[in-house]
């Protein structure tokens, strides 16, 4: 069953179209990655799904509830970790979670255990009575994840959850996120522009300029850019090329003294390759395509080198639009 269903969703601000007719479905219990450069429409999509803004046209359903018509039911079904911190820094971690529990109508008798469990899950129980302003960025983000789980949502939205975190905090948070679908019976919908993070997702949709340009599992998407590339250095490139041709029937390319061959499953090819070429091989390197290569192929630009000034222009335009209406 699809826990999220989006049909032809459009959101425009005056002349600016932030989301341009997107459709997708998310399977229950999976981690779904919504990928794209800044300003592609990721956050706008989340805001529509979370019923914070209304769509210009199209439909969105979460847990079977229409985001436009039953916002209250949708809100009960979801937890959200926004891009910017939305904690009360003048309250303690525990108080923030208790506040949330009351706000979402959690039964009073259950609040204590739920808060305890959530804090333990993200490893913050020891620091529960510290004011949030004393927390580091990574701790805050984990606390927000814990808060998002307090009311037992069916879907947890994470908008750029690892943005601005140091590598250790990122790894820590990733551990927490990947554990969640099984442990808390929740579907994860996350946006990111870190390609490595997308690899962990069960399914990915790549969005650019408000349109979904590719969809599928990371493996499927990577297949679209061709297979793995094995590069090797040998004692005799000419001889090796002929051997490789005999073994796999593939022409390899020679570039800068190295041989490059493209195959479907590079990791499976390597042992055979070494057996065949014997001690002619000096070194072997396997390069697998990344999601970034997928993005590069589809749009002709790398996902990270987004135009920052262009982005702030869009934000400025949206703000101006809001002021007028």
């Amino acid at each position: 069953m699809s826990i999220i269903r989006v049909e032809n969703l459009v959101k425009s601000y005056g002349g600016l179209t932030a989301i341009d007719g997107i459709s997708f479905e998310v399977e229950e219990g999976t981690i779904f990655g919504f990928l794209g450069p800044n300003g592609a429409g990721k956050t706008t999509t989340i805001n529509v799904l979370c019923t914070l803004i209304s769509a210009t046209s199209g439909k969105a359903f979460i847990n079977g509830h229409d985001c436009a018509k039953e916002p209250s039911n949708v809100r009960k079904s979801i937890g959200i970790v926004f891009q910017d911190t939305t904690l009360d820094k003048d309250l303690t971690a525990r108080e923030n979670l208790v506040f949330h529990a009351y706000l979402y109508g959690v039964k009073k008798s259950e609040i204590r255990t739920r808060v305890h469990d959530a804090l333990t899950f993200v490893g913050l129980y020891e620091r529960k009575d510290d004011l949030v302003k004393k927390y580091s960025g990574g701790m805050k983000r984990r606390l927000e994840v814990a808060r998002g789980l307090i009311h037992r949502p069916r879907v947890l939205f994470l908008d750029e959850p690892t943005l601005g975190l140091d590598p250790q905090s990122r790894a820590n948070l990733w551990g927490v996120i990947t554990e969640m679908p099984k442990k808390h019976n929740v579907t994860i919908f996350m946006t990111t522009h870190y390609m490595e993070e997308a690899e962990v997702c069960d399914n990915i949709a790549i969005i650019d300029n408000g349109k979904i340009i590719a969809e599928g599992s990371p493996e499927e998407l990577k297949k679209t850019v061709g297979g793995d590339v094995i590069s090797l250095r040998t004692r005799d490139n000419h001889w090796s090329r002929q051997e490789i041709k005999k073994m796999f029937g593939i022409d390899s390319e020679e570039k800068d003294g190295e041989l490059y061959l493209t195959t479907g499953r590079g990791d499976a090819c390597i042992p055979e390759l070494i057996r065949g070429l014997g001690d002619m091989v000096l070194s072997v390197k396997l390069q697998r395509p990344t999601i970034n290569d997928v993005f590069l192929k589809l749009t002709g630009k790398a996902i990270r080198d987004e135009d920052v000034s262009g982005m702030s222009n869009i934000k400025e335009e949206v703000r101006a639009y809001r002021r007028r209406h």
């Binding site: 916002p71 039911n73 809100r75 009960k76 959200i80 939305t86 904690l87 109508g105």
Partner: peptide
């Protein structure tokens, strides 16, 4: 203040009229 520092979003996103 809550709007600027984000906390108000936590309130607005809740299933509360």
């Amino acid at each position: 203040w809550d709007k600027e520092f984000g906390f108000f979003k936590e309130i607005l996103a809740a299933p509360v009229s």
